[in-house]
Amino acid sequence: MSGNGNAAATAEENSPKMRVIRVGTRKSQLARIQTDSVVATLKASYPGLQFEIIAMSTTGDKILDTALSKIGEKSLFTKELEHALEKNEVDLVVHSLKDLPTVLPPGFTIGAICKRENPHDAVVFHPKFVGKTLETLPEKSVVGTSSLRRAAQLQRKFPHLEFRSIRGNLNTRLRKLDEQQEFSAIILATAGLQRMGWHNRVGQILHPEECMYAVGQGALGVEVRAKDQDILDLVGVLHDPETLLRCIAERAFLRHLEGGCSVPVAVHTAMKDGQLYLTGGVWSLDGSDSIQETMQATIHVPAQHEDGPEDDPQLVGITARNIPRGPQLAAQNLGISLANLLLSKGAKNILDVARQLNDAH
């Protein structure tokens, strides 16, 4: 009898209710805020589980004197976190989706994509230029951005401005803007500013005609071990179906173009009346040469937790077992079709030249 009692006690200790789920994140304040929001949602869904947040620095956090596009290494903000995932030191990792490459290392998958916040870019102005827009900034004003995508589009749109690289986390960039006289304004992701509670610093939100956004911008991705079915089931509740389908289309477009950090590629997606609209573009580094096109596809946005595919093969690095396969494939095909259209119009040449120029500098 006593033996059975011990077995029952052991089973209770090993039951999922007692389990601590370890969540990996970057150390920056924004990353911690984003991770806290994901953990809060998981806690609400699984009140019996405990969650421990483990923060670590990544290569991208450490190399702050070089433009991201020049470092010449993929997975700048993800490699150390993936290493911890691989060694079973954490069970899942919360990322900004735009930091996750469209091809993940073997053994990993994006197990959830959370509801997207505003994906557009924002302009934050130096205190002396508050009330201005990019259009009304004085001639030769210097605007800071760490992104080739932003610089290429904005140089084309605002030729009277000069664009220079600015690195560091959000706090560091804002301090550089406010305390030094080098920059009249800087460009940042609206979602990051909003998550930090800095709505009052948003001086201008850039519309798609001015600057399309990065693939996955404004959404959070939760990376897990691809074979860890328990954790895949656990994080599945975080999937937002519309965000998922938009981001599958965007990531398929980028992957098929073979774009990345070192080339200016941008997108804009919208879901309306059962249609998914995808606009994508590529630019030369100075913005003088560009190709942009829009395509659409009829896609039914499923309700969360309709029964999805059981075999769960990944699409552009994403596993969404609780979302039907048909809409996911339709979104992926839309991204591939748009990429093929741009490639047929000469996108590869623009991107190759951009890559060579970026590598040469």
Rank of each mutant, 00 (worst) to 15 (best):
K128Q: 06
T145H: 04
Q304A: 15
P208C: 03
I291H: 10
M295H: 03
H199L: 09
Q181G: 11
V235G: 04
D61H: 06
I323K: 03
A360V: 15
T109K: 13
A330F: 07
K157W: 05
G107W: 15
V353D: 15
V235D: 01
C114P: 10
E80W: 07
A44W: 10
P47T: 12
D307L: 00
L338M: 13
L276C: 10
R167E: 02
Q356P: 15
Q194L: 10
G218C: 01
S69V: 09
Q332M: 15
R164D: 12
V39P: 01
E310Y: 03
V301P: 00
L315Y: 00
L174V: 10
A122E: 04
L329V: 15
T319H: 15
L244Q: 15
E52F: 11
A339R: 04
G131I: 04
L206Q: 03
Q217G: 01
E86R: 12
C247H: 00
T133C: 12
I53S: 08
S290Y: 12
V39I: 06
P159W: 05
Y213V: 02
K43H: 09
M196Q: 15
L343H: 13
V142F: 08
R195M: 02
N118H: 12
A339C: 02
A320K: 04
H120V: 09
S165H: 11
G131Q: 14
E82N: 09
G308Q: 15
V20G: 07
L341A: 01
G259P: 01
Q204G: 07
T59F: 15
I166S: 07
A152C: 11
A191C: 04
Q155F: 11
K157S: 11
Q292M: 13
I71A: 00
G335C: 08
A347M: 05
Q204M: 00
Q153D: 01
I186N: 06
D228S: 08
K227V: 02
L245C: 11
I187N: 05
F129D: 09
G107N: 07
E86I: 13
E73W: 04
T41G: 08
H120P: 04
H83Q: 14
K98V: 02
V316T: 03
H199I: 13
P47H: 10
S262G: 15
G280N: 01
A339I: 02
E162I: 12
A84Q: 06
V123S: 08
L68T: 05
P105D: 05
V222C: 10
L343M: 15
G274T: 00
E80F: 02
Q217W: 02
P309Q: 10
K62F: 07
G203T: 03
I63S: 10
I350C: 06
E242R: 09
A191G: 06
S57D: 14
L329P: 00
L334K: 02
I110Y: 04
H300Q: 11
V224D: 02
R195V: 05
D65S: 10
L148D: 07
R225F: 05
V123I: 13
G280S: 04
Q153N: 04
S165W: 05
N169I: 03
R26T: 00
S57K: 00
R32H: 07
S141E: 08
S337E: 05
T58N: 12
E306T: 03
G144L: 06
R325W: 13
E223M: 00
L92Y: 03
Q314Y: 03
R22C: 12
I110K: 04
P127K: 10
T41A: 10
R325F: 14
A226W: 15
G48N: 15
P264C: 01
D289G: 08
T25F: 04
L234C: 12
I205F: 01
A266R: 03
T66M: 10
A270P: 03
S96V: 02
V90W: 04
I336A: 07
P138F: 07
V267F: 14
R150Q: 02
L188C: 11
W198V: 10
L97R: 02
N171W: 14
E135I: 11
R173L: 03
K176W: 10
R246N: 07
L341M: 11
G168K: 04
Q217K: 04
T172E: 02
W283I: 05
A214V: 02
G111R: 03
R116H: 04
T109P: 00
A252T: 15
T298E: 10
I21V: 13
Q155D: 07
S57C: 10
Q194I: 01
T269G: 03
T294L: 09
L357C: 00
E223H: 06
A55W: 08
I63C: 11
D307N: 15
L76Y: 07
N200A: 12
G335W: 03
P302K: 05
C261L: 00
I205N: 09
Y213K: 02
G24N: 00
D307A: 10
N349A: 15
K227Q: 09
G72A: 10
K98Q: 02
S147F: 02
I63G: 11
Y213A: 01
V90Y: 05
L193T: 04
S141P: 04
D178G: 12
L97H: 01
G48H: 06
L206S: 04
R22E: 10
I318E: 05
G216Q: 00
T58C: 12
G281C: 11
D230L: 02
A122N: 10
L64V: 05
V130D: 15
L81H: 10
Q275G: 15
I71Y: 11
I336T: 02
F158V: 05
F125N: 09
P313Q: 03
T145W: 06
A55H: 12
R149T: 02
D359M: 02
D359R: 15
S337V: 15
D61E: 14
E52I: 13
Q292I: 15
S165D: 03
H120M: 13
L329S: 12
L30W: 00
P159A: 12
L254Q: 12
V265M: 03
G48V: 11
Y46S: 08
G24A: 09
I186P: 02
G308V: 13
G48R: 10
R32S: 08
R22V: 14
D99H: 07
H120R: 13
Q50P: 15
L137P: 02
T136G: 09
E82R: 08
G236R: 13
K345R: 03
A151K: 07
V353N: 15
V130P: 12
T109W: 07
L42R: 01
N171I: 10
A44H: 10
R173F: 01
A185D: 06
T294V: 13
S96L: 01
E86W: 04
G335M: 04
L49R: 06
D36P: 00
E223I: 04
G216I: 00
Q229R: 12
V282Y: 03
M212E: 06
V94H: 06
L232P: 04
K87D: 13
F129C: 07
L30F: 00
G260C: 15
